[in-house]
Each structure stands twice: as C-alpha cells, then as structure tokens.
Write a protein that binds this DNA or RNA. Structure first.
Lengths: 226, 226
DNA sequence: ACGCCCTTGTGAACCGATGCACAAAGTCAC
DNA sequence: GTGACTTTGTGCATCGGTTCACAAGGGCGT
C-alpha cells in the first residue's frame, strides 16, 4: 500500500455520487481538446463549489499540480479507476415496457464503462423481439445469462407489482446490484446493493419546491400590500 | 399562524425527498383497506428507520395518536397538502426521443398530482405525431402553451447538446421548475429550480459500490489464505 | 373511573458533509 | 537561480441530518 491516499479505504458517499459528474465534464473537455483545467473551471462546469471539488478529488489522491491545475486525461483516468470503469460492467435490463425499451436504446450507457448485454421480460408475447440490437429473453434464462455474460448489475423496469419477485430472481441469479425504476421499494438480503430512481417522486419533490417559491412570492406581495 | 407545527417555515430537504415515498406507501395501504398504521410498520414498508419516519412527520405537524399510530387517509392528506399535491401540476415534456416518449407514456404520473399537458420537440419531422394521447408541438409554441395551460414544470429529455438551449427557452416561457434528464448540467437564473436525473451516473455509482464489495470479498479471501 | 400499556413526538448526542481560509508547493518569467 | 504568482490540498469551524432513548400522552381493559 502506498503513501497516504492512493486507495484509502472509504471514499465518502457524497463524493462518490459526484465523481461520475466530474468524469462526464472531463470527457467533454477532452473531446474539445482541453488539456488542463483548474478546480475553479471544472467546478463551475458541473455546478459545485471549487472547495468541494478539491476535497472530493483529494480522496482519490493528489493528482493536481499547484499553481497549474489538473491534467484532463490523467484525472479522467484516475476517476475511472476509482469508480471501476476501466473495464466494462455487464448490465441486464428486466421489463421491456416503455421505460425498459428507452433504457435499452439509451446511448449514454455505452459511452462509459457500461454495456447492456441482456434484455428480459416475463411476457411470452414479446420474447424474441429485437430492441436496440438485442433479442428479448425469458426470465427463466436469467441465471444462465447472468453466469455466462458476467452480469453484475440489473436494471429493474417492471411495474411495481412484479418488482419484488423480479428482485428475488435477480438475487437468486447471483447479480449483486440493482437499479430499481419500479415505483416501490424492494427487500434484498445483506450484501446486495440497491439504488432507486423514481420519476414521479422527482416531479413531486420539484412540485414542493415550486410551491414554496410561489408561496414566498405571495407572502412577499402581502407584506408590500397589507 | 397556529400553535407549533401546522406549516412551519422550512421542512428539511432530506425530509421532503422522502415524503413522496411515504405517500406512495400510504396510498398502497389505503388501497389494501388498511385504516391505521404505526411508524414501525410504515417505516419498514419504505425501508427507513421508524425514528427517522417519526421525525420527518413531526415537521408537518402532530397527526399521529400515541399508543395507536397514524390514520392512513388523514396522513395521506396531510402529506399531499404539504407537497402541494392537492391540486394537479401541469408538466410539459420536451424532447421526444426514446426517453421522452417513455416519460409521456409513464402512468406513474397521472396517479398523483401530476398531469402531462404538452409534448414538444424541435424536429419538424415528428410534429403532430400523437404519443400517449397528445400531439407533439413545436418549441416555438412553448411560451403560449405554458401560459394557456399553466405549465409549472418542464421535463427536459433532449440530448446533452441541446439541453442548455431548451432550458433557456423553458425559463423564457416562465416555467419555474426543470427536471433535467439530459446528461449535462444546465445553468439557470436564480429563482428557477432544477433537479437532475442521470441514468448513466446512477449505474456508475452502483458499479463503484459493487467494486468495493468485490474487493472486500477478495481481501477477505487473502486474509484467510495468506 | 382508574391505571396499565403502547406508540408518538422530541431533546440531546453523534456523525458526516460543507464552507472557509490559508499554508504548502510547484511553475514561469527574468 | 531566484522570487513572485497561482492554485492545490487541508485543518478547522459550522451546519444539517441521523440515531438514541425516553418522557408525554392517549386508548383500552377491567
């Protein structure tokens, strides 16, 4: 193990959620031919404070040069390394409704470390249909598919009522991480990671803040016109 | 203003993000005919600790009964009230690619306080096409549409390169909140609310945690077999 | 009518994340 | 080779959120 920060046990969660954002911004910079970037520039590009950015990066190691900034390529590589994106992750998408098909066709995945290797659905009527170059396969084949193609992450895009059952099948197939798009929470054993993306929830949170804003305006008026 | 908690200024952000989850669980309970629920039951249903749940609810007021629990309908109503979901919010979806169409067809929205009232795209080739019962309209009409239909929230589902331009148009049309699905961060003036949903980022975060898990297993083996 | 029992609501300690401000460190010009 | 300048990396203070543990409070059985 090296000096002080090469791969310190435990990058804070809040930092981990921001690293992909930094990585994306860096990728865009690299594409535009930029070679070096300061914490100030990169931070404003992703919309965080430069102090936060520097502290985040300090958890991976000391890859900047004082008085100069960061080398775009090198920093990209180090973040990719920390996130484990130097090799591709095989993901399976389960549930081929509107959302599942959109996910299958989403090309933000292919760009960085993520490869969709299987599409599955429970409905026999859609089996064999090809979406984004992959044929839809039956749920019964999940264990074999997971094993043969090294699937580590499953995207669950089923209706709420089947999400738990699908999650159980995913766990039984030995897949260790689930990204749950179904509008329900799922139970998994210890040692299985779950994240949740809920579209309606996001809009509702936004509605709340919009309402607060509207109310603040209104009460502002009231104080002016008593 | 009433006693101590009716509508205290400032429900913590972390609480606001969880309220929609509670609301969904309560709705499911109500549908199954449940009348009363304890903090313990509800908490395990959404996967949080009961203490956190109670503290969250305490920010809205005192709607539980000690020794008994919460009335499902009444609590649902109070959360809806706090979130501003007692009336519907009109949302517009911009960008009718795979994701935009999936969002338009998503029926998790209609259920609770959210109504999709417009679909827009910049591409003249898709204008007029009907998706989920709504015709796709041109971006030029956004100001009129926003005004006439009271759009308060826009869902931006365009490619990254057009997201900023679309966001500017959204702000110019007087829409106060944006849910950004494009894989880029956008700049908006003060007083406009933005939330971001990034699918690739979510998978990358999951990949990181999966990697940590794998590494932990591996080093566990090493300590056993030196 | 009384007291037991159960669950809420919350004060206080704890923990992690954020923001501030500056010393450390390296570059570049001369 | 030296000094001035720039930007990083980080110690410290602060803030918000979570957890713990229990007193307050209401229902229900007797």
């Amino acid at each position: 193990m090296s000096s002080n920060a090469t791969q310190r046990r435990g990058i804070p969660d809040a930092t981990v959620t921001r690293l992909p954002e930094y990585l994306r911004a860096l990728t865009a910079l690299a594409e535009s031919g930029t070679v070096r970037v300061s914490s100030e520039e990169l931070a404003s590009l992703v919309g965080v404070s430069s102090a936060k950015l520097r502290k985040d990066l300090s958890h991976l190691g000391s890859y900047g040069v004082r008085g100069v900034g960061y080398d775009v390529d090198h920093l990209s590589y180090q973040i990719s390394l920390a996130l484990g994106l130097t090799h591709d992750w095989a993901v399976a998408i389960i549930g081929m409704g509107n959302l599942g098909r959109a996910l299958a066709a989403y090309n933000g995945f292919t760009s960085r470390g993520i490869q969709v290797v299987a599409l599955l659905d429970r409905d026999p009527a859609v089996l064999g249909r090809v979406v984004a170059g992959l044929a839809i396969e039956p749920m019964a084949d999940l264990p074999r598919i997971a094993r043969e193609r090294g699937v580590a992450i499953a995207l669950v895009a089923t209706p709420a009522r089947s999400a738990q059952e699908v999650a159980d099948a995913v766990v039984a197939a030995g897949i260790g991480s689930i990204l749950n798009f179904a509008p329900t929470s799922i139970e998994v054993p210890d040692g299985v990671r779950v994240r949740k993306v809920d579209l309606a929830t996001e809009v509702q949170i936004l509605a709340f803040h919009q309402l607060q804003h509207d109310r603040a305006l209104l009460s502002g008026l009231r104080t002016v016109i008593p």
